[in-house]
Write a protein that binds this DNA or RNA. Structure first.
Lengths: 191, 191
DNA sequence: CGTTGGCTTGAGAGGGCTCAAGGCCAGTGG
DNA sequence: CCACTGGCCTTGAGCCCTCTCAAGCCAACG
């Protein structure tokens, strides 16, 4: 399971084989069943998660009381509320398992220690963050430019297998529309 | 002018005084007048910019042919299309000066060289990217949760001086609404 | 086999858009 | 220094995309 993380590191930076175990020792493997919460809204966000298997989502409860998913994460992705994680404050988000999920968790102090000991990982995380940031901006672009129908089509064409993997109402909440409206769009596209 | 960059580095990592000049030599100071383009859509995005004075915006032309601003950047911010910058591909965005603006520019190769020579800057950029990413997610949250009126109010309450600094139609395009509708909101809030 | 959660359908409503026109101010050239 | 022009902001009417609300249906699960 843990090899996935080392493999992922190695896509970006060099890691000595002899250090692999030491690096992995900084992490805590955890398993969560479907719908379990990894981090709760309004609590301190102490952990950063690397997903080795499964799928997580990050959501908040909007003014109307409805859960809005702002992010999904699957195998080989990192997820946490970086703002709360870094500043050691309470988060506005909940991170929840969409499926049964295995993660490697690391807390802030261990992460700092790890980065101090293996500075090349600063580069790894810089690149990861940069990508995540770029992806987030692209997402904003789509939300600005596309109608609901186009957003769904775009998503479906680019991630067909993922669209099937998650419940429709979660996809709707990620695409920023009601489940009813998503249903209507799908019907329209079918015909 | 250039001291601003060193100062900014020093907020996050340690820099030896004796290295400051060497570091600054990696950068090229540039000045742009209002409405000048720093990077054009559909060209290679070779530079990363640190703003020492002024204000830039990043926009794309949407399907209807209208410019949509997806980001502003002011003093002490970095801006580029990281996706195109990192992958050396053409960008979908234009970066333009909102006011007369001074920047320090660095191209991809020089940045890599700089990071190789001063690895502590990997940490600096990791933290910068992490913040940018966190901010981008928060922005998405606001767009998901708030109505146009609330988005404007929120922006105005949090950045009153900035709201006055930029033209209204650019603010409208950043807030994802038409200038006409922004005008209507302002009228409503006035009364 | 009954209950519950998720998906679908449909009618009605409204937030935000489009289009078109008018007014105001700043910058430019004479 | 003044007139003119073009860009920006405002107003209003009409419309459409997407939401709300309410009901029905189906599959999964205890």
């Amino acid at each position: 399971m843990s090899e996935k993380l080392i493999e992922h590191f190695k896509k970006y930076v060099a890691i000595d084989t002899q250090h692999e175990t030491e690096i992995l020792n900084f992490f805590q493997p955890k398993t969560f069943s479907k719908k379990a919460n990894l981090i709760n809204e309004n609590t301190y966000c102490k952990l950063n998660f690397f997903i080795t298997e499964g799928c997580l989502r990050m959501f908040f409860v909007n003014q109307k009381g409805v859960e809005q998913t702002i992010q999904f994460a699957i195998e080989n992705w990192w997820i946490t509320d970086y703002f709360a994680f870094e500043s050691q404050t309470k988060t506005e988000f909940t991170i929840q398992a969409v499926e049964a999920t295995n993660v490697l968790a690391i807390d802030y102090q261990h992460q700092e220690e790890l980065l101090g000991k293996f500075p090349q990982l600063e580069r790894y995380f810089r690149l990861i963050n940069q990508r995540a940031y770029a992806a987030s901006l692209l997402r904003t672009k789509y939300l600005y430019d596309f109608s609901g129908e186009e957003i769904y089509q775009h998503f479906y064409e680019n991630y067909p297998e993922f669209a099937k993997r998650i419940p429709q109402h979660l996809l709707a909440s990620y695409l920023n529309m009601t489940p009813e409206y998503l249903s209507e769009i799908k019907k329209k596209l079918r015909s």
